[in-house]
Design a protein around this nucleic acid. Structure first.
Lengths: 188, 188
DNA sequence: TGTACATCAGTGAACGCGCGTTCACTGATGTAC
DNA sequence: TGTACATCAGTGAACGCGCGTTCACTGATGTAC
């Protein structure tokens, strides 16, 4: 049967939200059409009223996840007095490590995108914007380019969260987060 | 028919080698039983003469890939005069970025292991050994713990390679590798 | 040393299963008059 | 404003396909005598 346009729009939004979370939790290839639809409270048949196919959903979910990641960065950049400190404490926290579904899409999906080919352009655009904002928004040590420092910080944060998620030992996992935060703060 | 024990052992070795490469290229879940067997020159039926099931092959392939990664580290630690410099130049090179199959297993597989659960213990053991060796084998800046510096360096290298593989723009990809290397060398 | 036979790695057909996708159908919505 | 009808999001059965896994079979190897 036909549904009110507004309700359909709301359902589509629910779908995007569920897909962006699940994709970060299970990977772009790790979520099935059925489970995304189920999470949004529908049956699998309606999937093709919202997406052309599974690949397009993956791309859309990635884009949505990246937008949410961006929103998080914006929020932190408004923090006073020290946005960089706030950012490092959030990003390298156990909470972020343990909740990939609502966390940074680069840490969750960059590795898979690297081998799949799908989403590499979107990821490049996202990373460019990310680097511009943190290179300009944070205070950096004198003596070397802000952009290079922003790249090191980004690589270290992403790598630290990925490694912290990949080990089963809680002490080692926490140590990775703590040491990375300490080192990045120590250098200015 | 029955085959000479020595030939069987050689085939098993071929299987491990192929699996460890393919798993780094396509992910632990991204390789099928058939394609691994085909790569080793056999048909899929013989798979179960070598492994209990697909999951066990994935674990074995991960372990093999980590051993090969370790062997690479050992080799670099013997480099003169500056093993750290050699290490950073290899790890953060376009060659390493473009050849995940024979590259670092952490960069290739840590993200997937983080969400799968399989291999987290093996990964923790590997990372422990890795950190011990580079914390002890390289020269570090005074003023903060060698281990913390080793962790930052590892996180940054792994993150940089993952990000460099995830973007389609060659300039940005190279910039990530170059900036990370420059920054890590600059700090001693 | 020669003979008889159990072993077992490898082959390729066959299996059930979950997947992405298609389709006939439903019926309230929104539109044309 | 009321009526007739086309639209289309959503349902659930059905599809083909590739996957991991099983199985009967092969025949040279390695062993027992």
């Amino acid at each position: 049967m036909r549904y009110p346009a507004e309700e359909t729009a709301r359902k589509h939004q629910r779908l995007l939200e569920a897909a962006s979370v699940m994709v970060r939790q299970k990977g772009l290839d790790g979520v099935s059409v059925s489970e995304v639809m189920k999470a949004a409270g529908m049956t699998h048949g309606a999937f093709y009223s919202h997406f052309a196919n599974k690949e397009q959903m993956a791309e859309t979910a990635l884009a949505t996840a990246l937008v949410q990641t961006d929103a998080g960065v914006e929020q932190v950049l408004a923090a006073r007095p020290d946005p960089k400190d706030s950012f490092l404490h959030y990003y390298l926290s156990p909470a972020h490590r343990d909740d990939p579904g609502s966390g940074c899409a680069m840490a969750a999906l960059a590795a898979e995108i690297g081998r799949a080919g799908v989403g590499r352009q979107v990821m490049a655009g996202h990373l460019r914007g990310w680097l511009d904002r943190i290179a300009g928004g944070f205070k950096w040590a004198k003596g070397s380019a802000q952009r290079d420092q922003a790249i090191l910080m980004t690589a270290a944060m992403v790598g630290a969260v990925i490694l912290a998620r990949a080990v089963d030992n809680p002490e080692l996992s926490n140590e990775i987060l703590d040491a990375t935060r300490t080192q990045l703060l120590e250098r200015g």
